[in-house]
Design a protein around this nucleic acid. Structure first.
Lengths: 196, 196
DNA sequence: TTGCTGTCCTAACGTTCGTTAGTTACTTTT
DNA sequence: AAAAGTAACTAACGAACGTTAGGACAGCAA
């Protein structure tokens, strides 16, 4: 009877959530079964329920954690007194680093949040919408101050948020370029464009 | 006994595939059941099998069609004698228009291709990889000819492909901006950047 | 008319799913 | 050492899944 190994920083539940994020990322939420998860954790499926309430709780924990990290970051950035373009740079770099370091959670949250059920679904949607509006607000401020081109701010937000999620493909073929280079390339292209 | 309505241009199978794309986009491939699909089509689940071989065939038809459209387009663009930046602009605009007009198929192909099974999975992966390499090749040519900044070409491809997929969110809130404006905004931001 | 083909139906199959019940074994507390 | 609590097990539940079998009705060709 092999127990789930814990350490100082993570409970058994933490470990299950971590493995779940990995599995959900790999196979998708619906396609990943509790029996799959149990096998990865090293335990029978029923045993998982000593630590979690349901499969959907796993998704909800992952999505909430990601949403909170981004909300906290934009709180921090908005409070600073900086040119808009630098605020955007900071947010962009945060997104990129999250995608480099915690990408499993971020990808699951991005791709599987539709499978949340209320009230978590409504909450998530609201948090997401609010975040994008605040991001767009920073861009619009930059346009007013003539630091940024006259473009449609929501479109710019869309581009940046989705561009970053492309880092997933980079993860799979981590060969030529380093994380630092990737970050600089992305920020350059998005802020200054491709053309010379 | 209500039959599936057909017209001159689309067979019963075409109609099922179309409704399937819509459903897969909405709920995801795994979460969409054949009974769901049957209800949308207006028929019992078993009746679908008079027109299709399996659920997975539906996904494979959708993904293949999308992949072929992009492959054909890059064939066309590569053959032209134009500055790299214009070739990229053409591809970008094609991606944007596909996302505006055939977005259901494109989104399903983008998001659900992992659920394909061999040999379709391998084929799809290969076609995808090849497309990206050819796209990166155009960028690298532009860098050599000094039309484009010295950046990592695969990263630029990643950004552009994923940025375009953000148009899905735009579909849900089609309020302020027109399709034409959206296209111009996206091309401007990606080719010329945000900063003034 | 008769027979053929295409399209639908109902019924049911075997699997897999998330989850619960009840029990046993290990770990910690007293 | 006894008691209490935690974490694992086996077994099984009902529901939902993709799919198949077999039959009924329609429209068309002979």
């Amino acid at each position: 009877m092999g127990r789930i190994k814990t350490d100082q920083h993570s409970s058994r539940k933490d470990i299950i959530v971590e493995k779940a994020a990995n599995l959900f990322k790999e196979k998708g939420y619906k396609a990943a079964s509790m029996r799959d998860l149990a096998e990865v954790v090293g335990v029978e499926a029923a045993s998982l329920y000593n630590h979690i309430k349901s499969k959907s709780e796993l998704l909800h924990v992952i999505c909430l954690a990601v949403a909170n990290r981004f909300t906290n970051k934009i709180d921090e950035v908005e409070a600073e007194d900086l040119p808009a373009i630098q605020k955007i740079g900071k947010l962009l770099r945060f997104h990129i680093r999250e995608m480099l370091n915690n990408y499993e959670d971020v990808i699951v949250s991005d791709r599987e949040w539709k499978h949340l059920s209320d009230p978590y679904l409504s909450n998530f949607r609201h948090q997401r919408r609010t975040y994008r509006k605040r991001f767009a607000g920073i861009i619009e401020e930059g346009i007013r101050r003539k630091e940024i081109k006259k473009i449609d701010a929501p479109t710019a937000v869309l581009i940046m948020l989705h561009a970053v999620s492309g880092i997933e493909s980079f993860h799979r073929s981590r060969q030529k370029i380093s994380a630092k280079e990737l970050e600089e390339n992305m920020v350059t292209i998005l802020l200054n464009g491709l053309a010379k």
